[in-house]
Design a protein around this nucleic acid. Structure first.
Lengths: 226, 226, 226, 226
DNA sequence: AGGTAACCGAGACGGTACGTCGTGTCTTTAT
DNA sequence: ATAAAGACACGACGTACCGTCTCGGTTACCT
């Protein structure tokens, strides 16, 4: 949540005095995770976290100003900052993999953490800024760089507005994730990826990806004109 | 928020005794709206609402069980149940209009109400169910029926999975709306609509809509094969 | 603790809204008394009082701003505001009785309450003012009016500074009560009363009282000159 | 506050390791004094003392177990252990001087320290014992030895209970000091002294002292019988 | 015209969680 | 060994809001 500068300064200053207990920090994060999973954000009170972690409330407040900050860190510390996906193959193949991996993450127990953070972020601007910075942006940056490599490789035309593509890729996943009107799974992520690619990727690339025509469901050997 | 049955029963029971004060109801809804707009959801406590409305807390509780129920009703009572859009022209033109209109709504002061409701809905299943029922579903139903008319008109192939299309249409809007990583406006709604249509609508329909090729930005006179 | 004016106003205003629970008030005062007696002022926390009384902390705070205010009221409500003493006989006999009665009170379980209030009063001016007003002053007023009746009766010369006499009467009792360097009992109260009277009362009055000469211990048949 | 044994042991142990910082000790005592005078006992927390003294809390705890112990030492270290008074002249003249001097002390800025100690002593038996030992007793011992010399000199009859006299001398001063219902000053101390002496001292001694009859205010050339 | 039943405002009540403060202990580096 | 810095567990503080409750009073329908 803090700037990196602050973190470094803290590390420097921390040489004097009793050092921060890493054990406490871990126990707090675990306790927060457990409470959230088992009993929801409502039950995840600072009191309860401290009690379960066997620490004092003050220790919690010393290191996190917001409840959401704890959840954010709990999420990020476990989900290594980058969601893993195969980078082998073409950039677009990697991208498809990222999308599926992302959907899988949203479905995981850590997804529930994210849900809470987003909800909190709507209410509190600072929290919102924090997770956009530490969660949303890295994901988009990953995807954007893949798209740019695809542009370089001629698989996507240079004139395409990549931001719109990114929204088209992520948006429907977040939509189902937050509104919960329909099931979110890797299959949906793939379907969405393909339908986006159908409009954006070159025919060659689509063939290589095996992208189906959203209408016919046929593999894109399809001759549109004919 | 409640079932219709309850409402009817209430109407029946309400025949005897002092009738509910419509004035109070309106003042409560207004107070909730004002507090939310001016000072955020955090400040929109039942206490504060009752105080500002000049009613007692009990009067609030008598008619709404959840804080979010008030907000939902405040939103729905002002926004006429259906967001208006031109229905003249082809179904897809109407759909484009709906999308832009929808984006405009999300940007409006009532959008902020929706934001709060969604946030609350993430934390509370009952609230979630309520706004999916009273807000999300009607919107999707509207759009779906337009899509089906387009299918009948041969503008979209029958085999297309309309649910995926609906998610592709709404998802990116909700995404920007909730995550707030980028500006949401009617222009974006239109861009997204076009990029979805590019993959889904028949060439003829695209031409009629004046849908640009997402890549070239050229109007879709575009010769795919060439 | 408050002015009488406020109390009357409150009684008037209290007509609207749910009336204060007298039961809670009594349970709080009892709880405070019990805690103080059993475990001392240190353990008499607002938390503990509320818990033992089966009320909420807020209810405590609603009616008493200071911890000492509770103790003061607990003390005053039980010890009827005036310490009883025989008023029969001469004013000075009554005064002697008052002194003994006062010492007996200081030794009682309510004396312990007073001790706490005084201690608190040293730290907090408002508390100090409260118990001077509601406890110290009434006692002195009682004693003063007796002394004045004695003056009228010619048992004390009119030129005597009654305030100094009052301090001489009460001072040593408070001294032992607060400093606890020696045992405080009615016998000491009587001894002190007599030694004060020896200097102040007329020979006749001393005889009537049976006041001993502080030196010889003989009854005051004693001929000073001889 | 501690026994002398401990002090000696400490002196012995102190031969090894870094010696105790006398500077820290003084700064702590000063800080305590300042806080108490400037912002009251409530603000005189161990935290605040350590901060103002520029020491760590541990250093404070190492040398004083109670907060009141600091105050006691602060008081005693400044007020030379014995309150000075003229010893020239007769024992009773010295005693009168001691009383006035004592009142002057209670009025001084160190008096405020004593007030806090006494208040604390009411709540905490150990503190009470400490100041009785180190403050109250020495004062009383001083006064008692003067009284005994007066007895030897025939100025007070041997049968008089000196403890009662001591309480009559000190009691009213402490009374005004702690209850603060009236102004405490050397004049009051003198008035009280005289009224006590009137009952206790021989006529000759009273004449020498110039003790006024409490009633008439006349110097004690006064003929009682007449 | 009264009865009656549900309404309304005010505000006290028992709870739960909040975030802060002070206490006394512990753990580090430095002297 | 002592010192400064400061983290730590503990527990009380006083406040905020929750949802419920009891008051005195107010409609407006229904005998």
């Amino acid at each position: 949540v803090d700037d990196d500068t602050t973190a470094e300064q803290a590390a420097e200053l921390r040489s004097v005095g009793r050092p921060r207990s890493e054990a406490s920090r871990q126990r707090i994060l675990s306790a927060a995770r457990e409470l959230l999973e088992q009993r929801g954000l409502r039950a995840m009170t600072i009191c309860a976290i401290a009690e379960r972690a066997g620490t004092s409330k003050v220790t919690v407040y010393r290191w996190w100003s917001h409840k959401a900050a704890i959840v954010l860190e709990a999420m990020l510390s476990e989900v290594s900052p980058r969601i893993p996906y195969r980078r082998s193959g073409s950039p677009l193949e990697s991208l498809r993999d990222q999308m599926k991996s992302f959907a899988r993450f949203l479905m995981s127990r850590n997804g529930r953490l994210l849900q809470s953070v987003v909800a909190e972020g709507v209410l509190d601007a600072e929290v919102g800024h924090a997770y956009r910075q530490h969660w949303v942006k890295p994901r988009r940056d990953d995807a954007r760089s893949l798209l740019m490599r695809a542009v370089e490789a001629g698989e996507i035309e240079a004139s395409v507005d990549l931001e719109v593509v990114l929204d088209a890729l992520f948006g429907p996943l977040y939509y189902r994730f937050l509104i919960q009107h329909a099931r979110l799974d890797p299959a949906f992520a793939e379907a969405n990826f393909e339908s986006v690619m159908y409009g954006v990727a070159s025919e060659q690339a689509r063939k290589r990806l095996g992208v189906r025509d959203p209408a016919s469901g046929r593999r894109v050997v399809r001759k549109r004109k004919a």
